[in-house]
Amino acid sequence: METRIEEVEEFKVKGYGMKGPLSEIPGKWDVLNKELAEKGIVAEESFGLCLAMKDGEIHYIAGIKSNLAEGLQNIEEAVVPAGKFMVAKVEGGVHAIQTAFNVLMKTDSIQLRNSFSFERYVHPKGSDGFDIEVWLAIE
């Protein structure tokens, strides 16, 4: 798996959040995508933020950058802190996300940073598809 290191400035994500089992995540993406289509919001990237995980429950937000989220109702906002991330493209679709994170976490010579990690979905203008990247917070 090819990786790269990215350093980002802090940014905010707004979207539809949930606290519960992983199986509820696709439903939040359905709500987000429906709202974006109805409101005519075009985002070239979206984010799946894993804010916390405890006892089999995840606090997760399916969202877009805050500056694009005007008009979305009943949403949560989270700040992605500035810092370094190890990034890898996910091969195999949504079902391969957890495997990609697991591979990154086993990388020698990295130290994890106390921050949350996330998925980034890249969907260029004019494209029906998207690429998935996993972003792991590192020192």
Rank of each mutant, 00 (worst) to 15 (best):
residue 7 E to S: 14
residue 88 A to L: 10
residue 63 G to A: 01
residue 107 T to S: 05
residue 46 S to V: 00
residue 31 V to Q: 13
residue 76 E to A: 07
residue 2 E to C: 05
residue 46 S to T: 02
residue 86 M to P: 01
residue 6 E to C: 12
residue 105 M to L: 02
residue 36 L to V: 12
residue 104 L to H: 05
residue 27 G to D: 12
residue 10 E to W: 05
residue 22 L to F: 14
residue 84 K to M: 08
residue 12 K to H: 13
residue 82 A to P: 01
residue 64 I to P: 00
residue 28 K to R: 15
residue 39 K to V: 08
residue 70 E to H: 05
residue 53 M to T: 01
residue 99 T to K: 15
residue 78 A to R: 00
residue 55 D to P: 00
residue 49 L to W: 03
residue 95 H to L: 10
residue 108 D to Q: 04
residue 88 A to G: 08
residue 79 V to E: 07
residue 19 K to L: 14
residue 26 P to R: 07
residue 103 V to R: 09
residue 30 D to K: 13
residue 68 L to Q: 04
residue 2 E to L: 11
residue 52 A to K: 07
residue 34 K to F: 14
residue 62 A to C: 05
residue 126 G to W: 11
residue 45 E to P: 02
residue 14 K to M: 14
residue 44 E to P: 05
residue 105 M to K: 00
residue 90 V to G: 07
residue 103 V to K: 11
residue 61 I to F: 02
residue 23 S to C: 09
residue 27 G to N: 15
residue 92 G to A: 12
residue 52 A to V: 00
residue 111 Q to N: 04
residue 53 M to W: 02
residue 36 L to M: 14
residue 118 F to N: 03
residue 39 K to F: 14
residue 126 G to I: 10
residue 43 A to C: 06
residue 106 K to D: 04
residue 137 A to S: 04
residue 55 D to Q: 03
residue 73 Q to L: 07
residue 6 E to G: 10
residue 100 A to L: 05
residue 65 K to T: 06
residue 111 Q to S: 00
residue 100 A to R: 09
residue 23 S to I: 11
residue 108 D to S: 02
residue 91 E to I: 11
residue 73 Q to D: 10
residue 18 M to Y: 02
residue 131 D to L: 13
residue 73 Q to S: 07
residue 94 V to W: 14
residue 86 M to T: 09
residue 61 I to A: 00
residue 96 A to P: 02
residue 47 F to P: 00
residue 52 A to H: 09
residue 99 T to I: 08
residue 21 P to F: 15
residue 96 A to I: 07
residue 125 K to W: 08
residue 39 K to C: 10
residue 54 K to Y: 04
residue 116 F to Q: 03
residue 47 F to H: 00
residue 127 S to C: 09
residue 86 M to K: 12
residue 20 G to C: 11
residue 16 Y to S: 11
residue 57 E to L: 07
residue 72 L to C: 06
residue 67 N to C: 04
residue 77 E to L: 02
residue 61 I to R: 03
residue 128 D to L: 11
residue 4 R to N: 12
residue 20 G to M: 12
residue 51 L to S: 01
residue 8 V to C: 12
residue 121 Y to N: 06
residue 49 L to V: 02
residue 114 N to D: 13
residue 89 K to M: 08
residue 110 I to C: 01
residue 82 A to T: 07
residue 137 A to R: 03
residue 120 R to K: 11
residue 108 D to T: 02
residue 109 S to Y: 10
residue 117 S to D: 04
residue 64 I to D: 01
residue 39 K to Q: 13
residue 100 A to D: 05
residue 82 A to H: 06
